[in-house]
Design a protein around this nucleic acid. Sequence first.
RNA 1: CGGGGCGUAGCGCAGUUCGGCCAGCGCGCCUGCUUUGGGAGCAGGAUGUCGGAGGUUCAAAUCCUCUCGCCCCGACCA
Length: 476
Amino acid sequence: MARVITPRSEDYAQWYVDVVLNAELADYAPVKGCMVIRPNGYGIWEKMQSGLDGLFKDTGHSNAYFPLLIPESFMRKEAEHVEGFSPECAVVTMGGGKPLEEPLYIRPTSETIIWSMYRKWIRSYRDLPLLINQWANVVRWEMRTRLFLRTTEFLWQEGHTAHATHEDSHREALQMLDVYRQFAEEYMAMPVHVGRKTDAEKFPGALVTYCIEALMQDGKSLQAGTSHDLGQNFAKAFDVTYLSPEGVQEYVWATSWGVSTRLVGGLVMTHSDDDGLVIPPRLAPQLAVIVPIYRSDEERTAVLEAAHAAARQFPKAWRTVVDDRDTAKPGRKFTEWELRGVPIRIEIGPRDLAQGQVTVVRRDTKPKTTAPMEGLADHIQQTAEAMQRDLLERARSFRDQNTHSVDSWEEFEEIFRDGSAFVWAHWSGDPEVEAEIKERTKATVRLIPLDGDEEDGRCILSGKPSRTRVLFAKAY
RNA sequence: CGGGGCGUAGCGCAGUUCGGCCAGCGCGCCUGCUUUGGGAGCAGGAUGUCGGAGGUUCAAAUCCUCUCGCCCCGACCA
């Protein structure tokens, strides 16, 4: 079979598409901009869901579900919100064969319908905080789509919380930002920077938008999660008040925060290589695959028995596959499982059997090693943990090597002329300068650090005084 | 919406310039035998509204008109 993956050096965008398709993460759907998430891709999403859901529960949140369809009038209640989202909304105008009295928006996000309900549920300070998350699909009519990174319909979680004070909502927004950071690093092995968005990049209707940003292998930045301090904007738009202990009606303070199936795209672009997908062990739908190797029927029987025996002693959660197909040779099986990103491959052949051992190969590093059959589960467990650590370490060092601190406009332009990287540079905070930098280099302010070191500097473009560096990159 | 590419078997493509027998090739698929520690070999076999509609013609994958869709790049966005 010919080469199926375009090398990254040749065409990064095509490499990404090749990996996603060949790893069977997703396929193009009949509707433009939509994709089918296939079992291998959905399995990763399920792992992400369960990891995140645990972290949400640990921080006191509960899941609920709100409707897909939102009355048009709800969308219009928050001025910035409707302005930001209207252009990318799909709207249902017919139902039951007749025009609807009021068009129904397919949710691009659920703030409005959720706050219409919070109005009913919140009466007293005793009802706060209200900490709800929902796992859902949303639709945004994007001009240009890319598998996982930007699709018309995507899956996500959206947390929506209500608090008595701004201090509380502010703390919640930062807490969930940290949850995302932790998830990205510990589960996805994807190092991220955390910070605050500029006004130009913030969520329509938010007071402040916080984000995590990760560096992809091509030097572009991926916004991997956002957390918004919504202030009282939605409480005022939907008239959500509570009676304080002092007997005063007060507007509620809000947050919302979300991550989406875009994370799967980020995962691909953080770890995968020219041989296909690489999945960190903690997010792998299947941790290990066992490939039996044999010639004669006797060998086949003995090897398969050993393979299944090994698989049986592994924890069920590993979803170990014994690839006992007679229709493919071992070499074929190796490359297929490599394309699909299974973290650990175990080979068992007659030579291994004779020595009471197996051959173990990590997906991220190619050399074959051997391990005794005795205590194999422990060995695999340790191998998986080492791989998880190494992936994070490797991604971190890649990011460090592609992060620059820049003080001259010439150098700034040079970096973004043909490529991209993380660039820490001074910026005056002036929106017009931000726009001009984007115009001239395609690089944007990805985030403003939360507790950046203060230092005297001059804006990279305007030369105006600046107290902190901000993070620039071209963005996905 | 602008630029580029493309629609022919499950996938990848040739054939279209200059119309002409039964529309081809590779991979995959099915059957059999031999194989099996890095994408197996041989033999046999199945598979097509040539994206769609209309037109020109004795004859259209090929020429004309219209149309639908997809991918990539750019402007907008998680």
